[in-house]
């Protein structure tokens, strides 16, 4: 079986400083993978490299067996990499509907199915994105990524800074997507919330993967060593 996405030994630099030192990551179709690690270890850089928003100095990025290392980011997105960026970055002055239709690509996800998935977005259709609550903006950011009908959905800190009730709602939505067979890459810090959703976990330290295994196999020691403060 070909992997859906494969990052192999990539090195990424920001100017003179190196952020990734031979990072590896594989995502199989239908799998939900969690990318974990402390702040500054290279989680977001890995995602940026996978989405082709960051040039890769060494190593390769493949999607569905195709080498996309040199592809511009809009083409990577067209192949089916749907990013929900950190910090819920919607198009602030556009309405909810405009945010959604701007991203639309043909497939099972349409304006109707996204509205059915997040009824809140249906209620807020004509409202400007900047006037939504944090949770609603997050739903819109996920909805917008779904509108591209991604084969791989990437969620970067999807629940950061949200109230517990809203967090639960977002996690429930992600779980529903997973149950529908959506391949997902999640970046998050809370093991407890990731466990029911992610099949596998990749832990980063100083720009490379240091531990990979089933989410259920994460022991308190591993948590303490790589994720603890």
């Amino acid at each position: 079986m070909t992997a859906l996405a494969e990052v192999e030994g990539i090195e990424v630099f920001y100017g003179a400083s190196q952020a990734l030192f031979g990072m590896d990551l594989t995502i199989q179709p239908g799998e939900a993978v969690a990318l974990m690690g402390r702040n500054g270890m290279g989680k977001s850089t890995t995602i940026r490299a996978l989405c082709r928003m960051q040039p890769v100095a060494k190593g390769s990025v493949r999607f569905d067996g195709r080498d996309i290392t040199a592809l511009p980011s809009f083409q990577a997105a067209r192949l089916g990499i749907g990013l929900v960026p950190e910090g819920r970055r919607c198009f602030a002055t556009l309405t909810v509907t405009e945010n959604l239709i701007a991203a639309a690509r043909p497939g099972q996800w349409t304006l109707e199915t996204v509205r059915a998935f997040f009824p809140r977005l249906a209620e807020r259709s004509a409202q400007q994105a900047s006037t939504l609550s944090g949770g609603e903006q997050q739903m819109l950011a996920i909805g917008r990524a779904l509108m591209t009908n991604p084969r791989l959905l990437i969620l970067d800190e999807a629940t950061e800074g949200l109230a517990p009730v809203i967090r639960a709602e977002i996690w429930a939505a992600i779980a529903r997507l997973k149950a529908q067979g959506q391949s997902i890459l999640i970046v998050d810090k809370t093991v407890k919330e990731l466990k029911p959703i992610a099949d596998r976990c990749v832990v980063l330290e100083r720009g490379r993967a240091v531990w990979t295994g089933a989410t259920t196999a994460i022991t308190p020691e591993i948590e303490q060593r790589y994720l603890g403060i």
Partner: peptide
């Protein structure tokens, strides 16, 4: 951000 949803 527009490029990230597949639009050039």
């Amino acid at each position: 951000r527009v490029a990230a949803v597949g639009i050039s």
